[in-house]
């Protein structure tokens, strides 16, 4: 039996909205470590790994680890029936062929119950090695979203260059070229706006903007984003979910053969 009650139902709504364009379906694994998902996009270029730890929920009960095969589009349709301030309870029997979702309003006078039919999904799990990255950029998530949106007008690729001075995003295409440089600026009033760089070594990598823009749909979940880069390894883009979880995206770089 799996049962998890999320007092901030909006977290689950935003989480599913943020990944539904990248992956169409996946196995949500429930275990004593929480509710997790690892799934690749259909072209196997990008991967999302998310975790909501048990302390995201109250209560959280999972007697035995099991996968919940879910169509993201279907789950998204059902979660759109929940209000942002609803409490959401997820429940599944073991073995699970359905996921029950209960939405309770804060006034405690309206209860909605939905049932999602689960799927059998053969999912391929990738082993992601622990990596010490050459460059780590902590920045405002809305600034990152804005940069992706702006440079997408020019090209389908963006180069990210991290040095001691700061981080520069640049793109070039048929209409011309553009670049946006952010300097380290820890002395700003709002903590969300600061750009902080941890640098072992200068890095310059090129990525598809289309995927970065899809990752940026996670912006409503967290005011900050972290970009982790090393030469010739996939980019890690991380959004933390309060202190109770994360959404991590990996994107393979474009490299010379």
């Amino acid at each position: 039996m799996f049962e998890a009650r999320l007092s901030q139902g909006a977290v689950l709504k935003k989480l599913i909205e943020s990944i539904r364009d990248l992956v169409s379906e996946g196995n949500f694994d429930c275990s004593e470590n929480g509710l997790s998902l690892q799934a690749m996009d259909s072209s196997h270029v990008a991967l999302v790994a998310m975790l909501l730890r048990p302390d995201a929920f109250d209560p959280y009960r999972c007697d035995r680890s099991m996968p919940l095969g879910i169509s993201l589009k279907s789950l998204s349709s059902i979660l759109r029936c929940a209000s942002n301030d609803d409490v959401i309870t997820l429940r599944a029997e073991d073995p699970a062929d359905q996921l029950s979702l209960v939405f309770e309003n804060p006034q405690n006078d309206k209860v909605s119950e939905y049932v999602l039919n689960l799927m059998d999904i053969d999912s391929e799990h990738l082993g992601i090695p622990e990596t010490v990255y050459d460059a780590v950029v902590h920045m405002s998530s809305s600034e990152f979203q804005r940069i992706c949106r702006d440079l997408q007008q020019l090209s389908d690729s963006v180069s990210i260059d991290v040095s001691k001075e700061g981080v520069r995003f640049s793109a070039a295409g048929e209409v011309g070229s553009g670049s946006i440089a952010l300097r380290q600026n820890t002395n700003v009033d709002s903590g969300d706006e600061a750009t902080v760089i941890e640098l072992q070594q200068q890095v310059n990598l090129t990525f598809s903007i289309k995927y970065l823009s899809m990752f940026a749909k996670t912006t409503p979940l967290c005011g900050r984003v972290t970009l982790c880069m090393s030469s010739d390894v996939p980019l890690l883009v991380e959004y933390k979910i309060d202190e109770v979880g994360y959404v991590r995206y990996y994107l393979a770089p474009k490299i010379e053969e």
Partner: peptide, 14 residues
Amino acid sequence: GLNQKRLAWFFFPK
């Protein structure tokens, strides 16, 4: 030119 790699080129199946 630059080529888009797949993730499996970097990460191994579990």
